[in-house]
């Protein structure tokens, strides 16, 4: 992380003279008193996660649908999205700084880039795993290529596509903690500000975990609503 902890002077004084706080311990009272300072960073974090995953989903889905029809594109697009993913996050942010400047835009671009490999692969795998007989049946009924894609292939690939979105969401919650390096907000700045203070780390980390869980449940809910037939198969 950058620089030495800012803690020593300003924050420490702010915390008051509580001995638990002075020991950098886990202090419920302090948490209760200071909870409001986490509200804004939390919602920034939500924004920094939901927007990249949503935009990333649309881009990766479009690329996936294209590559599914022009299969020669699968290799290059796979390579490209994998390459994006392997750039370490600080490096990615630093690379983007000259282009997009400090702030949310840089963070959003970087985080969106990271979602690509996961979602793209799941789109491609999901579509490839649709049984050939289903596509054949659709053609045999007289569906055109586009009708087959949107009425049969995509719906059947949906569970796998949305599984990719869930992984991407969880990953993005974690990566968004670095967004502050690019001058964006989020819980990352809070954690870094007092990284040795247990109460702070627990609250900020806890909120991030909660966000990841909530997003996961949210996407899962969407998935269940969109694929009632899968439950029918079981029960």
């Amino acid at each position: 992380m950058i620089g030495p902890p800012l803690a020593q002077d300003g924050f420490l004084r702010e915390r008051g003279g509580d001995s638990c706080v002075a020991d950098n311990g886990f202090c419920p009272q302090w948490i209760a008193d200071n909870f409001d300072r986490y509200v804004d960073p939390f919602f920034e974090h939500v924004y920094l996660t939901v927007v990249p995953v949503a935009i990333g989903f649309l881009i990766a889905l479009a690329m996936g649908l294209l590559a599914h029809r022009r299969r020669a594109l699968i290799g290059p697009l796979n390579g490209f999205t994998t390459a994006l993913y392997t750039i370490p996050s600080p490096a990615m942010l630093l690379l983007l700084l000259p282009v997009t400047g400090r702030g949310n835009t840089t963070a959003l671009v970087a985080l969106t880039a990271y979602t690509q490999v996961i979602i793209f692969r799941n789109v491609i795998n999901g579509l490839s795993n649709v049984p050939a007989e289903m596509v054949d049946a659709a053609a045999g009924m007289g569906m055109t290529g586009r009708q087959r894609l949107f009425r049969v292939e995509v719906p059947l690939a949906l569970p796998e596509i949305l599984a990719g979105v869930r992984i991407a969401a969880a990953t993005t919650v974690g990566l968004a903690a670095f967004a502050y390096l690019a001058g964006a907000g989020g819980l990352g700045a809070q954690i870094d500000a007092q990284i040795t203070f247990k109460s702070n780390v627990v609250v900020a980390g806890g909120l991030a975990t909660l966000l990841a869980a909530a997003l996961d449940l949210g996407v899962l809910g969407v998935q269940r609503a969109l694929t009632p037939w899968r439950r029918a198969a079981v029960g």
Partner: peptide
């Protein structure tokens, strides 16, 4: 046209081929 022709011809596919999501 293949798609048009196929809509005019009933087709019961080997292994039935119902769409599981519909």
């Amino acid at each position: 046209k293949p798609a048009e022709l196929r809509r005019e011809i009933g087709y019961v596919i080997q292994q039935i081929g119902l769409f599981p999501h519909r």
